[in-house]
Amino acid sequence: MPLKSPLAKPRASIGFPGMLLGILLLAGLSGCATRNAAPVAAFDLGVPDAGALRPYPLAVEVRLPGWMDSEAMTYRLAYEDATRRRDYAQSRWAAAPSQLLAARLRRQLGAAGQGGCLVRVEVDLFEQTFTAPQASQARLAGRMTVLDPRRKTLAGQDVAYAIAAPSADARGGVAALVQAADALARDAAAMLARFDGADASVCRDARTK
């Protein structure tokens, strides 16, 4: 049986009060870290003035691939790895991009959302791309189609926009994507105008049906 050394000191016992104090200290540190963390900013595409060119029923539909249609705000460092998508840690979309884009298009086109023609946009690209550490652009691309009240295709065209961002951050990317969305709305209005003239009132006549 081994003998205890006379120099050995008994190990101090923390005890319940010490454990409680430690837990409170850790909780306090965690609370400080939470309070000091920057809040996550939620962005949308804004609310433009309602358009005056479409006083009759018109529907707008925007489709994005499921992996792209999330609230995560993505960007790409093309100068470093063009195949990798990254997410902003402190910025996100307030809703799915398809909903935000459709809402802005409806507002600008004055779409009532019932009957009439349908503007369908199938988006292949909706993101901020950095071409250099301090230079980026918003990229919006896909295909836009106009369908008549019976959902027969009237016209279609590929669309692609690249708008320089005013700043190399999430806020700058959002501002540029808003401009890209507005360019899409202008092209949609121009396409609809082809079926709203004196000789081609396919969409306009939906008001009386």
Score class of each variant (00 low, 15 high):
P2I: 11
K4H: 14
S5R: 08
L7H: 11
L7Y: 12
A8P: 00
L20M: 13
L26V: 14
L26F: 11
L29I: 12
G31Y: 11
N36E: 12
A37H: 09
A38D: 11
F43L: 00
V47Y: 05
V47W: 03
D49A: 14
A50E: 14
G51Q: 06
A52L: 12
A52Y: 02
L53M: 09
L53R: 13
Y56E: 08
A59L: 11
V60H: 09
V60Y: 09
R63I: 13
R63W: 08
P65W: 04
P65E: 06
G66H: 07
G66S: 14
W67L: 07
W67V: 03
W67S: 06
E71S: 06
A72D: 15
A72L: 12
M73S: 10
M73P: 10
T74F: 09
Y79F: 15
E80P: 00
E80R: 13
D81V: 04
T83Q: 14
R85G: 05
D87C: 02
Y88L: 03
A89L: 12
Q90H: 12
Q90F: 12
Q90D: 13
S91C: 05
R92D: 07
W93A: 02
A96F: 07
P97S: 07
P97M: 12
S98D: 06
S98R: 07
S98Y: 05
L100T: 01
L100R: 06
L101D: 03
L101V: 04
A102K: 07
A102P: 00
L105A: 04
G110F: 07
G110R: 08
G110A: 03
A111I: 05
A112M: 07
L118Y: 09
V119R: 04
R120T: 03
R120K: 15
V121M: 10
V121F: 13
V123T: 10
D124T: 14
Q128W: 01
T129L: 11
T129E: 14
F130P: 01
F130E: 00
A132S: 12
P133I: 06
P133C: 05
A135V: 09
Q137T: 06
R139F: 00
L140H: 03
L140T: 04
G142R: 02
G142V: 09
G142E: 05
R143P: 00
M144C: 01
T145N: 02
L147K: 10
L147N: 07
R150F: 08
R150G: 11
R151K: 14
T153K: 15
A155Y: 02
Q157I: 00
V159K: 09
A164Q: 11
A164F: 02
A164T: 14
A175L: 10
A176N: 01
V178L: 00
A183N: 13
L184S: 03
A185E: 02
A185D: 05
R186F: 04
R186I: 06
A188R: 06
A188W: 03
A190G: 07
M191W: 01
R194N: 11
G197Q: 06
A198W: 12
A200T: 10
V202P: 07
C203M: 05
C203T: 06
R204L: 14
A206P: 02
R207P: 00
R207Q: 14
T208H: 11
K209H: 12
K209C: 01
K209V: 10
K209T: 11
